[in-house]
């Protein structure tokens, strides 16, 4: 399975299609950090929200870059479960790379600052919370991108529609006062939490929420692929 992950990542990088989401991500981060300096945790919280559509799009591109017949060849060799898992794992690895860039980027452009007041978090804590909030966004983004992939939607138009509806839904349903916030991954609640001082319980709940949402999305992908090799 690891060999298939490598093969898919190599295809993703060598075709050049990886450039599009990377450039989009850098553009979004440039806009985000171009306006001034912020505390790491708060900056990273917004960064995770901004990167969610980029990560989902990147996942869709990675899964779509492989020809359909090649995907079926891999399924014959590895079996359906491992073929699908390899695709998701490759998307997660690529997404993790983007997250690393997002974590480093603000330090390169001076977008974050250390503690300036008595109530400010230490830089290490801020970075740790930043890693956590990005990793909270990544599985949901991979799940959404997988649901938008060509293997499921069978057409570029439906794929873009699924991606757009999923991203807009994640942001709108996550707004404070939403009637059904649990329908969306906890991006906005996590961002709001990081502007304050969330306790361990909040962290655990948000993590469980993100895990449940990602599990539901990935289960939907696996169910859809049963009849869509």
């Amino acid at each position: 399975m690891i060999a298939l992950v490598r093969l898919r990542l190599a295809g993703f990088v060598r075709t050049g299609v990886a450039l599009a989401p990377v450039l989009a991500g850098l553009l979004a981060l440039g806009v985000l950090y171009g306006g001034g300096r912020a505390q790491p945790a708060e900056a990273y919280a917004v960064s995770a929200v901004v990167l969610f559509p980029v990560l989902a799009w990147q996942t869709k591109i990675l899964l779509d870059v492989e020809p359909d017949v090649q995907r079926r060849l891999a399924q014959v060799v590895l079996g359906p479960a491992r073929e699908r898992a390899a695709g998701l794992l490759a998307a997660a690895v690529a997404g993790f790379g983007t997250v690393v860039v997002a974590l480093i980027f603000p330090w390169l452009v001076g977008g974050v600052t250390g503690p300036t007041g008595p109530g400010d978090r230490a830089v290490v804590v801020g970075v740790a919370l930043g890693v956590w909030v990005h990793l909270l966004a990544l599985p949901g983004a991979v799940g959404l991108g997988a649901l938008a992939s060509r293997a499921i939607t069978r057409s570029a138009g439906y794929g873009v529609a699924v991606l757009a509806v999923g991203v807009v839904g994640a942001l709108v349903l996550g707004l404070s006062g939403s009637a059904v916030p649990w329908l969306a991954p906890p991006l906005m609640p996590a961002a709001r939490a990081l502007t304050g001082h969330p306790g361990p319980t909040t962290g655990v709940l948000l993590t469980a929420w993100a895990a449940a949402w990602a599990t539901a999305a990935l289960a939907g992908y696996a169910w859809g692929r049963r009849t869509r090799p």
Binding site: A3, L4, A10, G11, P67, D68, V69, R72, L73, A74
Partner: peptide, 28 residues
């Protein structure tokens, strides 16, 4: 172990013949 030769090989991939076959061998 099943070998499947599709009617049309998906040649639209960014690999050389040797690299592709080696990778598929590793996948297998």
């Amino acid at each position: 172990v099943v070998g499947w030769v599709p009617e049309r090989f998906p040649a639209d991939q960014p690999f050389t013949v040797g690299a592709y076959l080696t990778a598929m061998g590793r996948v297998a």
